[in-house]
Amino acid sequence: MKALTWQGKRNLSIEEVPDPVIQEPTDAIIKVTSTAICGSDLHLYEVLGPYMHKGDILGHEPMGIVMEVGSAVKNLAPGDRVVIPFNIACGSCYMCSLGLQSQCETTQVRAKGSGAALFGYSELYGSVPGGQAEYLRVPHADYGPIKVGHDLDDQQYLYLSDILPTAWQAVAYAAVPDGGTLAVFGLGPVGQFCARIGRHLGHRVIGIDPVPERRAMAQRHGIETLDSHEHIGDELRELTDGRGPDAVVDAVGMEAHGSPVGGFAQFAAGLLPDALAQKAIETAGVDRLAALHASIDAVRRGGTISLSGVYGGMADPMPMLTLFDKQIQLRMGQCNVKHWIPELLPLVEQSGDPLGVHDLMTHEVPLEQGPEAYEMFQKKEDGCIKVVLKP
């Protein structure tokens, strides 16, 4: 089969690789019909390269048609149409019973001190082959896949794999009070959905992003938008009776613009041999923190900051005096996809498209154009906000 593979920093290629096969009774094989590039995939393209291996298959936002199931899979049959959550969970362990599927005790990558295994997301999360390929082996298919109908197009369902539940969890964790204001830093795909979900739930939403196309997309959904700048906290306070927003979602993460020191540290770590780079990241790694520090500055006293952007630094400087003095609550973590599906599936199937799932994809290209699509997405060229690959 053809698959999009990692070959080195900013170096991807389409390769012929062996077709996946059933390895465990709880496996399934799907033929991938759509698979998206996630903003967090760009971290593999750059910062997390030391955890990647040449030939690793990327991608964690796939959906498709079941081709084959293992003997223990009773909930699926060949021909079923499914969306595959990005985290791999068993559904029966203690963590899964709490709705914390991202911490599944069956698939935790204990060798790296990480939570549940993820598709296509480096040695840190199990080196599981990803979904930017023609076919995908799905472990724990007796629990994970989200079975959907055949009547609606892929775009209606695809984002249930990651970014839509990630955004839903981010807004839930933000705990915006009735009549309150939510600020969303970063209007990439997850930030777009955070803003729309906030509006859907009846909140005032202000989105902040330096890219005009992203602000324009958010405005189409009734979102107030601001360009990001050094004094964004002051501007947000001016718009919220001098207090700041009640809650902030940081949908940017570790590669925020405007963080020269963190950017240099990431670049320097990337120059080291992989073993040394891993050690540096795990003991002294520093993220680009401009968006997080702006969130801390902007949120009102007693407010909540919800982190959906991925962070990976182990030595990040944090303004603890401000966090404590302002009585700020922080919530964060990988999304527990299956936990939110009962709430989200009816919304994406609802007529009228209340969350705007049909107004996110800006580019749909063949899988073979994946390397070029990654470069375009990273450089934010051609108005690129969300790319869907078609194997």
Results as ranks from 00 to 15, higher is better:
101 Q>F: 10
225 T>I: 04
310 V>C: 09
230 E>H: 06
160 L>R: 05
13 S>M: 06
224 E>G: 08
268 A>S: 09
387 V>F: 02
270 G>L: 06
167 A>I: 01
239 L>Y: 06
29 I>G: 11
88 I>V: 11
80 D>V: 08
293 H>T: 10
45 Y>M: 10
65 I>R: 03
8 G>R: 03
375 E>C: 00
326 K>W: 06
345 L>F: 07
275 A>G: 09
125 Y>N: 14
33 T>F: 04
296 I>G: 11
181 T>E: 06
357 V>S: 10
39 G>P: 00
210 P>F: 09
110 R>W: 13
191 G>L: 02
357 V>H: 06
28 A>G: 14
2 K>H: 11
249 V>M: 03
3 A>H: 02
196 R>P: 03
179 G>D: 05
248 V>G: 04
210 P>R: 12
70 G>L: 04
355 L>C: 12
253 G>V: 01
25 P>V: 14
289 L>F: 00
102 S>Y: 01
141 A>Q: 04
198 G>C: 06
108 Q>R: 06
268 A>C: 01
81 R>Q: 11
376 M>S: 15
302 G>E: 02
141 A>N: 07
329 Q>G: 11
28 A>S: 14
173 Y>V: 01
148 V>K: 05
348 V>Q: 06
326 K>I: 09
184 V>F: 08
282 E>G: 10
86 F>K: 06
361 M>D: 11
79 G>L: 11
286 V>M: 09
359 D>Q: 11
188 G>I: 02
268 A>T: 02
142 D>A: 09
63 M>D: 11
33 T>D: 09
72 A>Y: 01
13 S>Q: 13
330 L>N: 06
330 L>A: 12
106 T>A: 15
102 S>D: 13
152 L>W: 00
36 A>T: 07
211 V>E: 14
14 I>V: 13
261 V>A: 08
20 P>F: 10
181 T>P: 00
58 L>T: 05
324 F>L: 13
46 E>T: 12
198 G>L: 03
25 P>Y: 12
91 G>C: 08
336 N>E: 11
196 R>G: 12
7 Q>F: 05
